[in-house]
């Protein structure tokens, strides 16, 4: 059965604007991104972004549009366990509580 929420793995140039480029591409096409993880690739000027997206006819076009971005070096569709993203929240078990309206501190 095809995974309803496949994951794309992007290698990108690591600079402050790159997330806007990637997210804007999806927003403009009213294509929802279900999940995002981004980590720098150590010892390089690149980052890796995992995007959990919706399966569908539009996906191929989205991949081609991503490949057109100058800051995107490669796009892969790795075969991840479909629950990879589901397991993430547990890893971020939070230590955060709100102390005053609008401000957050880590305890």
């Amino acid at each position: 059965m095809q995974n309803q929420f496949p994951v794309l793995e992007l290698i990108v140039r690591n600079h402050p604007g790159v997330m806007s480029h990637v997210c804007g591409l999806f927003a403009r096409r009213a294509f929802n991104v279900e999940g995002i993880v981004c980590l720098p690739i150590s010892g390089s000027e690149q980052s890796r972004i995992w995007l959990q997206v919706q399966a569908g006819d539009q996906l191929e076009q989205m991949i081609r549009q991503l490949e057109k971005l100058e800051d995107v070096i490669s796009v892969l569709k790795p075969d991840l366990d479909s629950d990879t993203f589901d397991r993430l929240p547990a890893m971020f078990k939070h230590q955060t509580r709100t102390v005053a309206p609008g401000s957050t501190s880590v305890v």
Binding site: E60, Q61, R64, Q65, E67, K68
Partner: peptide, 8 residues
């Protein structure tokens, strides 16, 4: 020249 146009 633009692959994203093909099949769009």
């Amino acid at each position: 020249i633009d692959r994203a146009e093909i099949g769009k």
